[in-house]
Design a protein around this nucleic acid. Structure first.
Lengths: 120, 120
DNA sequence: TAGCGTTATGTCCTTCGGAACATAACGAAA
DNA sequence: TTTCGTTATGTTCCGAAGGACATAACGCTA
């Protein structure tokens, strides 16, 4: 069984990560679960790490991608803002552009046809 | 001064990195310098690390992307194979596709217009 | 044959990202 | 006012990745 060949796109701000697969997945999961905690758990991620990702995203853009409230019904929750939705949509479109490109398919084919079995 | 917004593409094989910015840069530098050692130094990289990158690439594809010889005139050297050249070309084309896409420009603009100054 | 610069490879050490754990704040509902 | 689940934040610990250092192999050239 050959390991799957996939691609990732990272948007860098200076030397740091602005937007990537992890943050995008986090946005999507928050959109679905309305909770930072629940979203993080979908990836086997500690709440702390999930929250730090959200914090990072919110700091990076001119206005937050995620708003959260604590206390109250269900203990609290979170949801993505219109800006968050827009960024998420654009990122996913970009992923489709790359995944569907002839260049990716070419490299992918070359990588898939390698010799021995590898981990992963 | 706003930090520069750039993008990276990573081709993953299973959980591991198949081709990315570092390996592509390494390929390009070897092509230019005909030396793993000299190529690595261009990025302030130890010879060991540079060689490990090459080793990894050669193992990943069905045939090597880089061939090296030791001893002889100049102590030895390295160069990229036709397959290496092809992979490098395709990767660079893919980078241009992403960099030139409307989606990247959109996210880039949103990131560039953020609040406080950041490191990087 | 001695010298030189590069490839090839092993070992130790440091650094850093993330995991694990702990704790406080919050506000609706019972 | 007690309970509950979530957000918010600090501290400590560990493993993996990379850097530093050491050494051998190699083959042309002088």
């Amino acid at each position: 069984m050959a390991a799957q060949v996939t691609c990732q796109v990272r948007i860098m701000v200076g030397k740091g990560l602005g937007m990537g697969p992890g943050k995008a997945a986090m946005l999507k999961a928050i959109q679905a679960t309305k909770s930072i905690n629940a979203a993080g758990k979908q990836f086997g991620m500690s709440y702390r790490r999930a929250w730090l990702l959200v914090e990072e995203m919110n700091e990076l853009f001119s206005s937050p991608l995620v708003v959260a409230r604590r206390g109250g019904k269900g203990g609290g929750g979170a949801e993505i803002t219109p800006l968050g939705l827009r960024v998420l949509d654009d990122y996913e479109k970009l992923m489709r552009v790359v995944s569907g490109s002839a260049e990716f398919r070419t490299i992918s084919r070359l990588l898939a046809g390698r010799k021995g079995p590898r981990n992963g």
